[in-house]
Design a protein around this nucleic acid. Structure first.
Lengths: 200, 200
DNA sequence: GGAAGCATGTAAAGTGTTACATGATTTT
DNA sequence: AAAATCATGTAACACTTTACATGCTTCC
């Protein structure tokens, strides 16, 4: 059986103390969502697969007529997780960002719209940064088990990257605005030869 | 007909002067790949769809027995592109990064392996940054048509973000190493209460 | 009593990639 | 002459998401 990143997400979450598929999904939504989104329709079949492979064990934990399965890592499961954590080959990160695509083609827009677009991107990144800092970091920092530091580190890294991008874009916006202003004040002057517009 | 981001990728690339499906794919591989990967199996059907919707026109441009279709934006196509560029609602960026997932669960590793993992991530980000700077930025800067600045700006932003992440991770690595060193020098000291085993 | 959350699962639809198939042209 | 690149397209496969279906428990 071939284990893929979603499999390791399950194993890792179980190791962090999540016991039901539902709990895994809930935890993933407030922790790994930004770099590895997951849906419930993936969680349940994957847990079943892992049970079949002997990497997790299932125990019935129903309360009355309310069904619940409680999962636990087996020794083989923990080993598989550790082996993956130590492995050096990983698929290159996949990003699909419609906003960057828009920015890429922004030359088609008039200057004013370009500036607004860049401002929107900057603001959305700033928002993402503060959202991670206020909504996700605190949860990661107070997470069980105590002594777990990497979930918080990843949250901090993500937030800092978003904040950095927001600043970068704000500077770029200022540059665009300055160029537009210069353009207005100088518009009657001579055109400097082969001046590159895209100087940072 | 509903237009999705891949549709706008086609429209935008056509506007930048690409004429064949093959050319679009080639251009995308050295420019938009990092934030919007595309495969040929998407390009051809999508161009056909756009032609059906009247947003592009196809002209036969075969050389001898070698088939080639040449596409061009229609007025409606250009309008659709501009409308999308101005639109303010976009899907949140999707990231799937196995390396971050690994980092997230790194508490399960002994300290030395944690440090190595973080170092690998830092190096891979530094590599990504320099790859974009040397392989992609120059192409974007010299790209037709002259006056096009945003492709280069996006490349710079991406490279700078990777470089920032690389530095962040290098600092984190140093912190982990310092913690490990402190631990060694202090290892005979008192044991703090409730210390978890996975601190290592 | 109603709303929100807990909990599990399946089916269908959508989206995207890899591999296949084909053949011409250009470069080495 | 062989290899690489140009060029187009399809079919099969893989992966995910959305929507559906169901019903309990806890909080307001």
């Amino acid at each position: 059986m071939k284990l893929k990143p979603p499999s390791y997400l399950m194993l890792g979450m179980l190791r962090l103390g999540m016991r039901s598929g539902y709990a895994i999904k809930k935890a993933a939504d407030v922790s790994t969502k930004h770099f590895w989104p997951t849906s419930l329709a993936q969680v349940y079949p994957e847990l079943a697969r892992l049970e079949g492979a002997g990497l997790v064990t299932r125990r019935d934990d129903s309360h009355g007529s309310r069904a619940r399965s409680s999962y636990e890592l087996t020794a083989a499961g923990e080993e598989a997780l550790l082996a993956w954590l130590r492995s050096t080959r990983d698929a290159p990160p996949q990003v699909r960002d419609e906003r960057l695509l828009r920015l890429f083609f922004a030359d088609a827009l008039p200057r004013d719209d370009q500036i607004q677009l860049v401002r929107r991107l900057s603001e959305s990144d700033r928002l993402a940064a503060s959202w991670i800092r206020t909504e996700i970091l605190p949860l990661a920092e107070s997470a069980e088990p105590a002594g777990t530091r990497f979930p918080a580190a990843v949250a901090r890294l993500s937030a800092d990257i978003y904040a950095y991008a927001a600043e970068w874009l704000a500077a770029f916006e200022a540059e665009l605005a300055a160029g537009a202003a210069r353009r207005v004040t100088r518009s009657q002057g001579r055109d400097s030869p082969r001046r590159r517009d895209n100087r940072r």
